[in-house]
C-alpha cells in the first residue's frame, strides 16, 4: 500500500469504529462539559470577569478532553493484538503516525465544535463574523496538542501507569500551545485589531510544523523491534 493510502485507511478505520461505538466522542464531550461547569462554579464571578477568563477555561477544557481522546487512541489498538499487526506490516511508520494524527485531530475538532456553541451561550459571546478566524485558531491549537499527543500516546500505551504518564509528559511540552491559543482566542473575542494577536497564531503554526515533523521522524523509533 502506498503512503497516502495507509494514512487514509487508518484514519477511516478509526472513524468507522467511532461511528459504530461512539465511545470516544461522547466521553470526551461529557468530560469537557463537566470541566467547564466545574470551572464556572469555582469562579463564580460577574459576566465581565467570566468573559476574560473564558479563553483559558475553554482551552483547558479542550486540552483535557484531548488527553482523554489521545489516551484511547492507541489503547483501542491493544485489543486483538492490532498494534502488533500494525508493527509487523511492511508499511511506513510515518504513515501510521499521520493516520493516527488525522483521526485524533478530527475527534478533538468534532468535540470542540460541538462545545463551542455552549461557550457562546454560557458566556454571552457575539462571534458570528469572527468564526472563520476562530476556526483557524482552533485547528492550529488542536494540531499542536495532537501532534505531540499522538506521539506520546503511542509511547505510553505500551508501559505501566499509562493514564498518568500521558498528561505528565504531554502537558509541560504544550505550554507554548496553551499560551498561544489562549492569547489568540482572547484577542479575537475581545475584538482587538488582528495585528495584536497575529503573532500568536503564527507561533501556533510554527509549533505545529516543527512538532509534526519531529514527531513524524521519531515515531519510527517507537514502533521498532
Amino acid at each position: 500500500m502506498n503512503f497516502f493510502n495507509v494514512i487514509r485507511w487508518l484514519a477511516w478505520k478509526d472513524l468507522l469504529s467511532e461511528m459504530r461505538s461512539r465511545e470516544n466522542i461522547s466521553s470526551m464531550f461529557f468530560f469537557a462539559l463537566i470541566v467547564i461547569l466545574i470551572f464556572s462554579f469555582s469562579f463564580s464571578t460577574d459576566q465581565q470577569t467570566a468573559r476574560e477568563l473564558m479563553p483559558g477555561i475553554m482551552w483547558v477544557a479542550f486540552v483535557f478532553t484531548g488527553i482523554i481522546g489521545l489516551g484511547k487512541s492507541f489503547t483501542a489498538e491493544l485489543q486483538n493484538d492490532c498494534l502488533e499487526n500494525l508493527q509487523m506490516n511492511p508499511i511506513p511508520r510515518g504513515a501510521i503516525y499521520l493516520g493516527k494524527l488525522a483521526s485524533n485531530l478530527l475527534f478533538m475538532l468534532i468535540v470542540e465544535l460541538i462545545l463551542f456553541p455552549l461557550f457562546v451561550i454560557f458566556f454571552n459571546l457575539d462571534v458570528f463574523e469572527k468564526i472563520p478566524l476562530f476556526v483557524l485558531i482552533l485547528i492550529a491549537g488542536t494540531l499542536g496538542v495532537s501532534s505531540v499527543g499522538t506521539l506520546f500516546s503511542a509511547m505510553t500505551v505500551q508501559i505501566r501507569a499509562r493514564e498518568v504518564m500521558l498528561p505528565i509528559l504531554l502537558l509541560p511540552l504544550i505550554v507554548p500551545v496553551m499560551i498561544g491559543a489562549v492569547e489568540a482566542t482572547g484577542g479575537l473575542l475581545r475584538g482587538d485589531p488582528i495585528s495584536l494577536y497575529r503573532p500568536w497564531i503564527e507561533l501556533l503554526i510554527v509549533f505545529d510544523v516543527i512538532f509534526t515533523i519531529v514527531s513524524f521522524w521519531v515515531f519510527e523509533f517507537i514502533l521498532d523491534h
Binding site: 506521539l151 508501559i159 509528559l169 511540552l173 514527531s215 521519531v218 517507537i222
Partner: peptide
C-alpha cells in the same frame, strides 16, 4: 522511549 522524550 526515554531518548525520544529527551529529544522532543
Amino acid at each position: 522511549y526515554a531518548a525520544i522524550l529527551a529529544i522532543v
